[in-house]
Design a binder for these strands. Sequence first.
DNA 1: GCAAGGTC
Length: 868
Amino acid sequence: MAPPCKVLMVAEKPSIALSIASVLSHGQMSTRRGVTEVHEFDIMFLGFHAHCRVTSVIGHVFSVDFPASYQDWTATDPLNLFQAPILKTESNPKAHIQRHLSQESRGCGYLVLWLDCDREGENICFEVIECTGFHVKEAKERVYRARFSSVTEKDILKAMDNLVEPNKDEALAVDARQEIDLKVGVAFTRFQTSYFQGKYGNLDSRVISYGPCQTPTLGFCVQRYLQITTFKQEKFWTVHPYIIKNGYDLQLEWERQMLFDLNVATMFQKLVMEDGLLEVIDISEKQESKGRPCGLNTVNLLKVASSALGFGPQVAMQLAERLYTQGFISYPRTESTAYPSSFDFKVTLNEQISNPLWGDHVQRLLVEGYQKPRMGTDAGDHPPITPMQSATEDMLAKDAWRLYQYVCQHFIASISPDCKFVRKKVQFKVGGECFHCVGQHVTLEGFTSIMPWLAVNEKRLPQFTIGEKIEVSNVELYEGNTEPPDYLTESELISLMEKNGIGTDASIPVHINNICERNYVQVQSGRKLVPTALGIALIRGYQYIDPDLCLPEIRSFIEHQITLVAKGQADHVRVVQHVLQQFKNKYSYFVKQIENMDVLFEAQFSTLADSGRVFSKCGKCLRYLKYISARPSRLYCGTCEEVYYLPQKGTIKLFKELTCPLDNFELLIISMPGPEGKSFPLCPYCYNSPPFEGIDTLFGGTQSGSSVKPGKGAGMPCSLCPHPTCRHSLVTQGVCACPECSGTLVLDPVSAPKWRLNCNKCNCFVMLPQGAHRIATTQERCSECDSAIIQVDFNKKTTPLEDGATLYVGCILCDELLHSLVEVKHGKSFFKGLGTRGRGRGTRRGGFRGRELPSGKRIDPKMSFRDF
DNA sequence: GCAAGGTC
């Protein structure tokens, strides 16, 4: 008999893979760990006996970016990005999802795609197909798409019986969106950032970003701010008659509400006073009801978390995710507010029956019957967020408990009766004017007893009869001021974003966080979003130059265009080209008009010339450079009008008054934070424009100590410099190969008295004899291993040498005395892995890079710290 | 150093 055929099934996340496998195997599966879990079992598939493997990706496998040649900000005109090629690279290379899929698909004859049923899911389908290699097999007969409307047994089995083809058009729509977002966002961001950071010293944001989601999000906040600042306060007047009836002291409301003219208002007040007798002209009673909430989805949870619990969206999601993984609530990322028909309310209610706060209410619901939940919308993803296991306050941290409590309250409320109340309105006439008062009487608290903050206020009225006349006790002429709106709350912003289709439930928190991190807005008390000078200048600038750039319609425009692709009504390539051409035009116009935004910056920020403090000498003009500490920290020469970027981590000091022999700039010392942080010298000029051709590739591209790469080959500190004679270069200060990486251990010039060598590439370092007066490299080489011979001037009191001698010269690897006095640090895997790490290390060890530059000779691979 | 979208 032929071996059973094998089927690979892939879900979007591990939790769904587990659900699907549990349903299809009836719980009879074996599970093994992998990059993501793999569940295996036998089933009937297309009428055959088959062995089934169910695993998952973790969201998108790939993301798009520009090729390396476009990564250099100074060498690439952002305008060229619009036509640049793009690459798909693994989103999280460390997760090895691609390898995982490729391995698991081996030997499988069929692929079933269980990705979420939205456009992104459809796109991930094709990412998975790519990784598994099914595209080269007869894809149509071998690759199937399972379309499920919820993760329930019923829907999973139904999807299994109705397998379809994956939808290429929908996937291409996502490709289109990715390319458009990348090109537009990156082009504008690079241009703005370079332009403004090249001019101003106190922008306090490392990057002046632009994006089709984040910018309209900021736009909402600034729009409200502008409404507030341009608000013109007006005085208004209103007439309030008072009556006393059956012990009630009532203030009546005027039908005209308010007037903006004092004379006219005073006239009405007089008319009322002169008449002095109110007549009841109408009494109406209406049954009103306040509806219970639908099921809870993510966006609504975030809104409540922000407005009622004071948690920002990101914090709220972190709390929710933890509650989910601990089994206290259901999956917290969902758009749906409709419960699936199979949802078991009794089981969920039963869990809450002994809760001290709402247990009684739950018990009543179970005994008297709970309400059918309101319709809500079913987005086809996960059910609404509901409590799972019961919890008590002492089981959870304070914030988690508050969020859990809300999820429970919301769930219970959603199947509790609506709140019912009677609204009574009594209308009066006096002096020809109409007034009224309103009473409310709650007949059924319903769900508001579990969500008391939504309760309807009880307002009682005395008995009135039509035609009844009542004496006016007093007529007040109230003077008020119109008030501007308040700053936008985070909760309002979330609503606006949702309404305008900006972001998704998962990305809304990210966009809000972005505009905070970029220092465009600040979250103030009550989670109000107050724009900063930077945020305001940006939006006002767009509004002046091209308002489209910050309007929410920019997102809907993109969405609309890619929907044409998704529906198969337009060609993917042509749509992308068309949209990019429009944005390219907008970009060119924006660049041409940037001075109109710049005037707003000029008014708020100080130019580089006026920023920073006098620091070190420029090698070109010999005047002082200014150190600008605002991120990105840099030096600025006012005379040459040049900017020199610096490493963004660590503190910076002058290195004595030493200068670089190549360009005459004064040298600086960068000290990394922390007790074990290393220090290294750099020349500001060389750091930004390495003097030796090919220096950036010489060291394998990764350089230590620099998190900023402003220009081509930038980020060269002295510890990477191949200068043959300078006292601070790699060549003269390098001692031997790093035991951990392909870097070189270089003497730290300011580490005395805790002398040390630092690797110029990784975090590894070596402690040298402590307390020595002086340690220096010499030009001598060890005859055995070719390390630099070092000279140690020991302290008289602590010298290990006989007869109190202090001077000693030797190789730290081969000389027994020195060897016994040094110690490798931060070599995490160094000691453990020695025996098994032989393969591949020899070649790296042989590459005593830097040291081989002047002499050009290869070095014996045994030279290293392996003998420690 | 850049976007927005998945998910952890």
